[in-house]
Write a protein that binds this DNA or RNA. Sequence first.
DNA 1: GGATTAAGTATACTTTAGGATACAGGTATC
DNA 2: GATACCTGTATCCTAAAGTATACTTAATCC
Lengths: 116, 116
Amino acid sequence: MVTKNEETNFQEKIKAIQDTMFVLGGKWKIPVILSIYSGNKRFNEIASSIPTITNRVLSKELKHLEENLLISRTVIDDYPVRIEYALTAYCLTTEEVAAPLEKWGKNHLKKISGKV
Amino acid sequence: MVTKNEETNFQEKIKAIQDTMFVLGGKWKIPVILSIYSGNKRFNEIASSIPTITNRVLSKELKHLEENLLISRTVIDDYPVRIEYALTAYCLTTEEVAAPLEKWGKNHLKKISGKV
DNA sequence: GGATTAAGTATACTTTAGGATACAGGTATC
DNA sequence: GATACCTGTATCCTAAAGTATACTTAATCC
């Protein structure tokens, strides 16, 4: 038995978590952010730093991240036209999510494989 | 330009995050955990605490969570046979992931709606 | 004028997640 | 013997996510 307020909190928690999952969830979003964070700026650099991602998927992910204000896309107009991706200042807040996800995943692997 | 070790770290980070996403990602896994955490034990209790989830999906999520050692399923053999779900001690570690996801989601909503 | 390079797009899939609806199986009550 | 209760399963479907492979466009070097 829960009170009205606990009930409301519960629904709000669910919504907030589902929102985060929409923006940062899926197989590739955080890996793309980490790739740019670790120094890759150009489309092909990012693509080759994430071995099994395809052009089409990377293109979609970059758009999604840009729409959510997490990365910027700059056109550099010399030969041949280059594009540079960069993380926004806001994107650095995703570290608060990525670090726990990484830590939990590493521990879970041990747990499941019976070593903990 | 990154060194061999940075490269290895990067690939390991990606894998750990993708592992977590597989276990806790998607629309319903953390909501189901939160529902049990907030006191719901029975299938129908959990189902009705999460307004739009269907029986089929809840059933799948419960199995997935049980396989990953996050919940237990106990058969209680009186009339009519009841089942009680409970979080394992290990499941409490998901709070380390759920709390940041919730916090980030709440802030992101403000950010995107232009209030921050 | 042919080759090369960067940043994608086009097309055509396959796979996974999730949703809608119905109903089954066992038991105890009436 | 019909009915209701509980925990799901069965069947079918849609939509989203992800994959594979080839191609485009524009400029500039050779």
